[in-house]
């Protein structure tokens, strides 16, 4: 029965795809007609691509980037710790686990995070799971139940105080989203000055190389929807630590 249903679902999708392709031509021809030109099939020259030139030349020194990132992250209610090594980062997380009585910690499957050896450093009673490390677990549910999520930033941007996390099989989107408290390990050399320095890498990578999820995170989840009063931790993590390592 399941098989038959799946088939019909696939058939339905195939039918929609056919309809969509037929409609695509009509849709695009309609647009071209209204714009008053023949259908454009090759890329037009785009003289205004990206940020203005003066901005592309803007750059901070490494120390300015660390300072800028820190100031921005603090200004939106995030926390920042400057640490010398991954061992210090592990000790910092363990200290917070003690302080907040964290029982469940979920980390990405990432060599640098394995190096934290959280299993050994966390206080007794706290368990560590590694995202997608077996096929049986309901990983989204594990993430939703986690007190701490631990991720490593793929990029960081000083000017906006943002980190970028990219999804992969071992790097779930849920790990930076569902736990109550989020720790982001940021090797300081990954901090760039401008947003554009990170964004242009996705153009360079191209479609086929992009992960399903690219997430820029600039602090704790927040809202001012009730009487303009700032509330932290509405849906995403309300407590976010940026751990600057190096």
């Amino acid at each position: 029965m399941a098989n038959q249903q799946q088939e019909s679902h696939a058939e339905w999708l195939a039918r929609l795809a056919e309809e969509s392709k037929a409609k695509q031509e009509k849709f695009m021809n309609g647009i071209a007609k209204r714009l008053g030109h023949p259908r454009m099939t090759s890329a037009p020259a785009h003289p205004y691509r990206g940020a203005p030139d003066f901005w592309k030349a803007y750059e901070w020194t490494p120390e300015e980037r660390i300072q800028g990132f820190t100031d921005n992250f603090l200004s939106v209610g995030g926390h920042v710790a400057r640490l010398e090594s991954l061992a210090d980062a592990a000790a910092f997380i363990a200290g917070k686990a003690e302080e907040m009585s964290a029982r469940t910690v979920l980390r990405q499957d990432d060599p640098a995070l394995a190096e934290l050896r959280l299993e050994e450093t966390l206080p007794a009673g706290a368990s560590v799971s590694v995202w997608n490390s077996d096929d049986e677990s309901q990983w989204k549910t594990v993430a939703a139940g986690a007190d701490f999520g631990v991720v490593q930033a793929d990029h960081a941007v000083a000017y906006t105080g943002s980190v970028t996390v990219l999804s992969a099989s071992g790097k779930g989107r849920s790990v930076s989203l569902l736990p109550t408290v989020l720790f982001i390990v940021i090797p300081v050399e990954r901090i760039k000055t401008r947003l554009g320095e990170v964004l242009t890498t996705f153009d360079e990578t191209g479609r086929e190389g992009l992960p399903a999820g690219i997430h820029f995170i600039s602090g704790p989840s927040r809202s001012s929807d009730i009487e303009n009063d700032l509330t932290i931790g509405v849906h995403g993590p309300g407590i976010v630590y940026a751990l600057l390592v190096g």
Binding site: V76, W131, N132, W139, K140, S162, S167, A168, S169, G172, F202, R207, L210, P211, A212, G213, I214, H215, F216, I217, S218, G219, P220, S221, R222, G236
Partner: peptide
């Protein structure tokens, strides 16, 4: 606080 770029559904190995 969040800016997300989503490129297609989950990849085959994603959870």
């Amino acid at each position: 606080m969040y800016m997300s770029g989503i490129t297609g559904p989950r990849r085959s190995g994603d959870a």
